[in-house]
Every structure is written in structure tokens, then in C-alpha cells.
């Protein structure tokens, strides 16, 4: 290994929400340039308290923000291989090793069982910090297994997408994961179980042309870039500048492509509410009481 690469790997990350750093510091929001106490950022689901920017999250942080308690982790045993002996500016195994050291996981996906405000779910979370969340054989396999196991257990699936698309280094094998995941999700449909996908910044390429967009309900995070072709490619094709906000979550909502945009700080309660409705589960006792007492108080004070 070249020495410069060795040092680069250990240099502290400047990204305020990198997985490897303790949040006991001040950081600067890249959007509004305000100083943010990182502990506040963490407490607020990594949404900038002053401008509302939804910071990108690695899979572990995402799981913490989404679920009630630590996941019963399923992924981790399936490892990538270099089937094509792919070599560009560096070899695929070298790239993989770097991403594995950075994230502590074998590939760009975390799956497991957990709960969201008391609703039991299976979650699959793509890890953008691992090679841009690219989808190769391992990501495809883990998503397929998560869907099949959720169906066996009678649980809904919540998938968080964050990906630049299919992984080039596995070429046609990556492409086939689009088919594999789409087909595996049929197990949930067959059992009438909900599949919800949450599209986060960024979700592009093959992921938007397969499992991420065939969900029963598609949720997007505010401001997330979501699209099939990248903006640069489109610009080269049409040879004119793209409109403001093109391919952002709000643009997609306007064009009827997503069901709703949900602020990350609101996601747990909104997803739980939706899942309970789709699965005929009762409103939790505490919430029902709060609602009825509120209704009662509005009655006495007209």
C-alpha cells in the first residue's frame, strides 16, 4: 500500500456527521454555514437546526434515528467478491477494503429486525458511505433476503435508499440485482405485507429503476436528489441548463412520483402511523388517551 493512502485513511474526517467521529464538537453546516453543536445535531436526527438541511447519514446512524432500539442485525455475513477481476485506476478488492475499513461492514447495506414506535419491522438501510451506496451482488442479496424473511415472519419492510446506482465493478451482475430484488419483493405482496421505501439524498441510477420505486408507499426526505439519469448526463443530452430544483424530492412530489416528503424528525411517528393503518393495528394506548383528552378539553372550552 502506498504511504499517502495509508495516511489519508487515518486523517480525521471533516464531514460533521461522519460515522467515525464523536459528536462532542462544533461543526459548520455546509448549507447555511451556521455553527452547530454536534450533540444538538445528533439529538435532532442530524437535521440542521437553523436551515433544516438533512445531513447524509451512514447506515448505523440511520438505524439509530429510525428505530426504537438497536437492530437485531441480519446483514454482515455475505461478503463481496471480485468476480470480474475488475481493475480501473485501482483494483476492485482495494476499493472494497477501503470502504470496509471506513464503514466496518462488508458492503453497502445494513439489514435487520427492529421496531418503529412499537411497530415490529424489518429494515434494510443502504450505506452511502460505502462506495456511494452502490448496488452490487451483496446489496441485492441482502435486500432479497430481508424481503423474503420479512414475508416469512409476517413483518413489513422499511427500506432506506441512499445510492449512486448499480456498482460498475460488478457490471452485468450488478444489473441483475435490479431484477433479483424486484422479484424477491413479490414475497411481501403475496402475503399482503407493506413495503415502504424512504428515498434519501441521493438515490439515483439503477436503484430508482428497481426496488426503491416499486414500494407500496414511497417517502422522500426534503431536498433529496432522486432520479434515474444523473443531472450531468441529462445536461449533456439536452444541452441546456436544468431548471431550479430539478430531480429534488419536492420536484418529484409535484410530478406525482412520491407519496410524501417527510422531515426526518417526523419520520418515526409518520411511518409507524402508516404501518399501523396498513396492518390493521390499533392506535397505541398512550396516543389514544392523549387524543381523547385533547378532544375532551376542546369540548369544555368552545
Amino acid at each position: 500500500m502506498a504511504l499517502d493512502k495509508f495516511f489519508r485513511r487515518r486523517r480525521p474526517q471533516v464531514n460533521p456527521v461522519a460515522e467515525t467521529e464523536t459528536p462532542d464538537l462544533w461543526g459548520k453546516c455546509p448549507q447555511c454555514k451556521e455553527n452547530v453543536y454536534l450533540r444538538d445535531l445528533a439529538a435532532g436526527a442530524y437535521v440542521c437546526p437553523s436551515c433544516g438541511l438533512h445531513h447524509r447519514l451512514g447506515a448505523s446512524r440511520r438505524a439509530e434515528v429510525l428505530c426504537d432500539s438497536p437492530l437485531e442485525q441480519w446483514s454482515g455475513r455475505v461478503h463481496p467478491v471480485d468476480a470480474l477481476k475488475f481493475h480501473d485506476t485501482e483494483s476492485y478488492p482495494e476499493r472494497l477494503k477501503r470502504a470496509q475499513l471506513k464503514t466496518g461492514r462488508p458492503d453497502a447495506i445494513l439489514t435487520g429486525r427492529g421496531s418503529i414506535e412499537g411497530v415490529d419491522v424489518v429494515v434494510a438501510i443502504m450505506d452511502f458511505e460505502f462506495s456511494g451506496g452502490s448496488m452490487g451482488s451483496v446489496v441485492g442479496e441482502e435486500i432479497a433476503r430481508a424481503a423474503e424473511r420479512a414475508a416469512q415472519m409476517g413483518l413489513p419492510l422499511v427500506l432506506v435508499a441512499a445510492s449512486g446506482g448499480a456498482r460498475m465493478q460488478e457490471s452485468a451482475l450488478s444489473l441483475m440485482q435490479m431484477a433479483k430484488t424486484t422479484i424477491a419483493l413479490e414475497a411481501l405482496s403475496a402475503r399482503g405485507l407493506p413495503y415502504i421505501s424512504v428515498l434519501t439524498d441521493p438515490t439515483t441510477g439503477g436503484v430508482t429503476a428497481s426496488f426503491a420505486t416499486i414500494a407500496d408507499v414511497i417517502v422522500a426526505e426534503p431536498g433529496a436528489l432522486i432520479g434515474f439519469a444523473g443531472p450531468r448526463v441529462i445536461q449533456q443530452t439536452i444541452r441546456q441548463s436544468l431548471p431550479e430544483g430539478f430531480q429534488r424530492a419536492e420536484f418529484l412530489l409535484e410530478h406525482g412520483m412520491v407519496d410524501m416528503i417527510v422531515d426526518r424528525r417526523q419520520q418515526r411517528s409518520d411511518l409507524a402511523k402508516l404501518l399501523r393503518l396498513l396492518m390493521h393495528q390499533p392506535v397505541p394506548v398512550a396516543q389514544a388517551q392523549a387524543a381523547s383528552s385533547q378532544a375532551a378539553s376542546t369540548q369544555v372550552a368552545p
Binding site: 430508482t208 434515474f228 439536452i238 436544468l242 430539478f246 410530478h255
Partner: peptide
């Protein structure tokens, strides 16, 4: 698939 602006508006990935 065609990488155009309108294609994206109409949900190419979808």
C-alpha cells in the same frame, strides 16, 4: 433508457 429532462419528469426509473 433516454436520459432526458422530460423522461425524468415522467418517472423513467419508476
Amino acid at each position: 433508457a433516454y436520459p432526458g429532462l422530460e423522461a425524468e419528469e415522467r418517472g423513467q426509473g419508476w
